[in-house]
Computed example of a mutant assay.
Amino acid sequence: MLGALLWGVVAASSLTLGALLALGRRWSDRVIGGVLAFGAGALISSVAFELSEEGTRTAGPLPVAIGLAVGALSFYLATRALERIGRRGGGGTAGLPLALGALLDGVPEQAVLGIGIASGEGVSIALLVAIFVSNLPEGIGSASDLLKAGRSRRVVLGLWLAVSVACALATIGGYGAAQVAGPGFSGVVDGFAAGALLVMLVDSMIPEAREKAGEIAGLLTVLGFAVGAGLSVLG
């Protein structure tokens, strides 16, 4: 279990690192958009090769399909709730959908790491690197948007520390659950992460990347996908 926690901390640390990079200096919109586009490509690769494909292989299509639906609906409803809270409070939700996406996909993604360790398969280096690489743009993009919206540096850092801790602890949760649950559980977890990711990508990450990076966003997204796919093959 200690090993699962250590790997969980390694994977989740890039969320806080991304926020620290945003706090350390002011990034231009074009740079942020480019980073988001690259990260979106890496996340699409993670959905295709590390979550949907692996979940289907180990548990079959039905648990993955159930997880996809639940994950997508969870992100959609949580985002709508954030928007309502923002309107009532007189503020916006700038940056919060990315933070929410990092939580809703990061927790099940890292639970998958714990499940792999508990099952004796070891750590998927491809999944570990994909999580680490794709977390950075989420942290940078969300923290930058939150700072521009007037949130204090302490609030921004505290938010991303909380998300990082929750994701790291999810690795232990996956490790423990794997001791008592069957392969169907892993498939649902994979599907949940994939569903939350896909809605976040379409609703938040890709539109923001295109708006800020301009015409190069598509090219950088494909580059991110290629890097993520290469890591999956190597893993």
Rank of each mutant, 00 (worst) to 15 (best):
G173W: 11
G195L: 04
V35L: 15
I85A: 14
I115F: 09
A196W: 08
I216L: 07
A126F: 07
V10F: 13
D29M: 05
W27R: 12
V70W: 09
T171N: 06
V47Q: 04
L82R: 05
Y175K: 08
F225A: 12
G95F: 03
Y76V: 03
L234K: 11
V129Q: 02
L100D: 07
V222I: 15
L51R: 09
S14I: 04
A40C: 14
T171W: 07
I66H: 10
G120H: 07
L220R: 14
L147D: 09
G18A: 10
G86V: 04
F38V: 04
V180Q: 09
L197A: 11
V129D: 01
L169M: 09
I32W: 01
G235C: 01
S124N: 15
A94I: 08
G39K: 04
M200P: 00
S232W: 03
I216G: 00
P183L: 01
L5G: 08
M205I: 13
A118Y: 03
R80L: 11
L201E: 00
V112K: 11
V47F: 12
G24I: 01
A226H: 06
L234H: 09
L77G: 06
L113Q: 08
G122F: 12
A166F: 04
G67N: 13
M1R: 09
A42Q: 07
R87K: 15
I216F: 00
